[in-house]
Amino acid sequence: MLGYEIFVDGFAISSLYALGAVGFTLIFGVSGVLNLAHGGTMVVAAMIAWLVIGDLHTGVLGGALIGIIAAIAFAFATYFAAVRPIQRSRAIPKEETEIFILTSTLLWGIMIQTAIAYFFTTNPVTVPPLVPGVVHVLSVRTPSNEVLIAVLCWLVMALLWLFVSRTRAGKALLAASINPRALTLCGFELSRIHLLVWAIYGVLAGIAGVLLGTYLGASSDNIGPLTASAFSIVILGGLGSVPGSLIAAYVVGYFETITAYLVAPTLRSIPALIILVLVLYIRPQGILGRR
């Protein structure tokens, strides 16, 4: 029974981690940007969904959609406010661009965190579940919403895979992550590909954020930990590797769940961090890293 509980509970949370981290790793793979305002994108999606469902009575699906749109808008805002100006700045030496972007996205994330705390308090909000009720999975009483989360996460990732492997825009995206210079020589505009990847990122992080809101709740205090968890997963999986991030998300999700069940709920996040440190010592490129 306990084994089943760990399996079912861990699967839902790991799927959510995976979806959250995939967008994060995609942006790094394609444009070399580590977006430290990532948690902010997820929380903005959940907050906006919660707000419009409660105050505008849009219904859960309408609210979820508006939440995802808000996340796309926020992703573009991050790009145009915290990333693009630094990439174009002549005052910043080329080799220092990355560290400046790291700093600017971090500060941007803190600004959003403070703004959300100011307007909505630090108290977590929850988006109503997309489907109510419970079902029994492997004889474990599981909210239907949790099953839906796992299914949706995999569906979205399958769609992403189809997009990248079957469409022209998707293939260009993949090519940009392998050799951006060659891509520009083929006549592709790199800045448009960057816009595309930020839009995809907004969709992925938005969906993950809304689903997070229906499952664990979201508050301004979550922004830092959400960024940190995506960051750990991506480091563990190998920077820029989507399959690596998927594997790492399940490793982290299950380690956390096992710890919460078998050791103590208080220590939940510790073992994953220990693994992360070990990986940095033994295999710094991560599970499927290229470098």
Binding site: E5, D9, N222, P265, T266
Partner: peptide
């Protein structure tokens, strides 16, 4: 007697342990 971290976001393991 269960004590958990105030940062806890997933209470499923706690509720399952209590139910058991």
């Amino acid at each position: 007697h269960i004590r958990f971290s105030p940062d806890t976001t997933d209470f499923t393991p706690i509720f399952n342990r209590i139910e058991a």
